[in-house]
Each structure stands twice: as structure tokens, then as C-alpha cells.
């Protein structure tokens, strides 16, 4: 990235294949305009998102990490998102405790019908990340 280019936050988005991933598709086919900063990674369930994925994304230079799954009660595997909620709450708390900006990790529930919500979530996330600047705390590439 040359110095003239304005800073664009890079987001890694872990999206549940049953809801949020389809939700992002809906945002696309509905032609909703939203920033292209998020790199989606489809996962089988938000409950399968290991804390390691989040730390690893930050380590490899992500400015923010989004995990998005089904609304409580709607999990395709009955209770995956309940596990995700508990596990990732701990990740959020730990990052904050270590002094990493809490805005860098975000979670959302987006159903397959909520294309507009998905676009809004990404829009908000990018806006919140922009003032923080590049993430250099956990980034191994920028020591």
C-alpha cells in the first residue's frame, strides 16, 4: 500500500454457511452498496469458529475480525451459536483485557433473509475501524 492511498481497514469475516453467508449473498444480489473491506470465509457453523482463527487473523494482519452466525434459536445444528456466544465472549474479554481495542472484534447474528442487515454490519464495522488505524498489536508482519 503506497502512502498516497488512504487507509482501508481489512476485515476477515467468518460467516456461517446457513445464514450470514447466504445473507451476504442476498446483499449482493439485492445490489446493496456496502464497503468491500471484508474478506468472507464461510464456516459450517459459528460454533466452529475457534478462538485460534480470530487470533490467527489478527496475527496475519487483519484490522478487524467479524464472526456472524444465526440468531439464537435458529442454529442449523440446534446449539452451535450458543457455544459460539460463550466461547467468543471469552475471546472478546481477553482481547480487551490485554489492551487491544475492543472494536477490532465483532460478532453479529445475520439470517439468510437479512441482506440489508449484513451490509449495515459491515458498514458500521468499517466506520468504527477506520479511526483506529492499522492493527499493529497482534500483527506479526508489522513488528
Amino acid at each position: 500500500m503506497s502512502e498516497q492511498t488512504p487507509y482501508e481497514p481489512r476485515i476477515v469475516a467468518f460467516l456461517c454457511k446457513w445464514c450470514s453467508s447466504a445473507g451476504s449473498d442476498l446483499a449482493g444480489v439485492s445490489r446493496i452498496q456496502y464497503p468491500a473491506n471484508a474478506t468472507p470465509i464461510t464456516v459450517a457453523c459459528s460454533g466452529g469458529v475457534s478462538p485460534q482463527y480470530i487470533l490467527s487473523a489478527l496475527r496475519k494482519g487483519a484490522d478487524g475480525v467479524l464472526v456472524s452466525g444465526c440468531h439464537i434459536g435458529d442454529c442449523h445444528y440446534m446449539e452451535g451459536n450458543m457455544h459460539a456466544r460463550r466461547k467468543l465472549y471469552l475471546v472478546k474479554e481477553l482481547l480487551e483485557f490485554a489492551g487491544v481495542e475492543p472494536e477490532r472484534f465483532r460478532m453479529s447474528w445475520v439470517s439468510a433473509a437479512e441482506g440489508a442487515k449484513f451490509a449495515q454490519v459491515v458498514r458500521d464495522f468499517v466506520e468504527d475501524l477506520r479511526p483506529l488505524g492499522p492493527q499493529d498489536k497482534l500483527n506479526a508482519e508489522r513488528p
Binding site: 487470533l55 490467527s56 496475527r59 475471546v91 500483527n139 513488528p143
Partner: peptide
């Protein structure tokens, strides 16, 4: 390689954070 074995700040933090989460 989730975390490198060698000592560097980012990897050390990654290691200790992972350990803390595994011990939760």
C-alpha cells in the same frame, strides 16, 4: 503454523492468549 515457535512479540502474545483461552 498457527503460531511460530520462535520468540517474537506477536507470536508470544498469540501463544499466551491461546493458552489462557485453552485454560478457561
Amino acid at each position: 503454523r498457527w503460531i511460530e515457535r520462535s520468540a517474537s512479540r506477536a507470536d508470544n502474545i498469540g501463544y499466551h492468549m491461546t493458552r489462557a483461552l485453552h485454560l478457561a
